[in-house]
Design a protein around this nucleic acid. Structure first.
Lengths: 143, 143
DNA sequence: ATACGACTTAAACCATAGTTTAAGTCAACA
DNA sequence: TGTTGACTTAAACTATGGTTTAAGTCGTAT
């Protein structure tokens, strides 16, 4: 089995080493082994667990909840129902948040549209001034 | 024109009064008038501005950026290009975040599926035991 | 008159999620 | 042998986004 140093885990998931240490301290990465120099060794299982943690983090689950979930994983199979419930609830929360963001984005799109129109109008007014000057120039050339 | 007290604004947008005061202090709600008792009066324009602030907040724009945007609004029409740029950039950031959440949700769905299958299996094993007992009972009744 | 409810302020306080620092250890290479 | 680079620790520090507190003011209903 292949083990990663913290630097490799950091590179692989693009997460600072300091954050990985912080996660371990907070209990999100339990049971990490050490080599005889005391350095963390991330097993493949640990890397998979880390990926799960990142998933939950990306969907804004608070660290305390992630810790509870990890604790349940460590505890074993008799917590599967609890984990299932948690994931279902979290999924609903995430869907609600995505919906809120999607709705709020409409308000932002309204701004973009308005500003774009205003700027188009300003630009066309500038063009109009340009034409007037052109016309003036033409006239003066005619005269 | 109708004016709202802070309590009404709080109710309307479901935001604590303390947060509204905090937003004003941070410059997200500039130019709020006061009655002769010193109480904040939210005009319809202010309410519209507040709705915009909430939109940006819902899409995770940091307060410092919201303040910059509001400052540009107060500054006037010569900042429209800046505001348009900001909203366009923000929209891209929001779309990226929604995408990340949507992708991460797939990992969560995998967990839900796995746990559901495990529990179904456990349940069917329980049923199987139930059948055995029923069979045993039946046999014993036959005997 | 006074008590009440809705507000006001500045400043302290809180939670969350890290980041940074300072001092030290270990293994390998020059 | 000593210096370098990758790590270690605990603890202090930071940023963000509020929330809470304490003390006070105003206008109305009793």
């Amino acid at each position: 089995m292949k083990y990663c140093l913290i630097s490799e885990a950091s590179d692989k998931f693009n997460i600072p080493e300091s954050t990985l240490r912080y996660y371990e301290k907070k209990g999100l990465l339990p049971l990490i082994e050490r080599d005889n120099a005391g350095r963390r060794l991330f097993s493949e299982d640990q890397m998979a667990l880390l990926e799960t943690v990142i998933c939950l983090k990306n969907t804004h689950m608070p660290i305390s909840d992630i810790k509870q979930y990890i604790d349940w994983i460590v505890e074993g199979d008799n917590t599967i129902e609890l984990r299932l419930e948690m994931m279902k609830n979290h999924k609903q929360a995430v869907l609600a948040e995505i919906l809120l963001m999607t709705e709020s984005l409409k308000g932002i799109d309204v701004k973009i549209t308005r500003y774009t129109i205003v700027l188009r109008k300003e630009k066309s007014e500038k063009d109009f001034d340009g034409l007037l000057i052109a016309g003036f120039n033409t006239n003066s050339e005619k005269a």
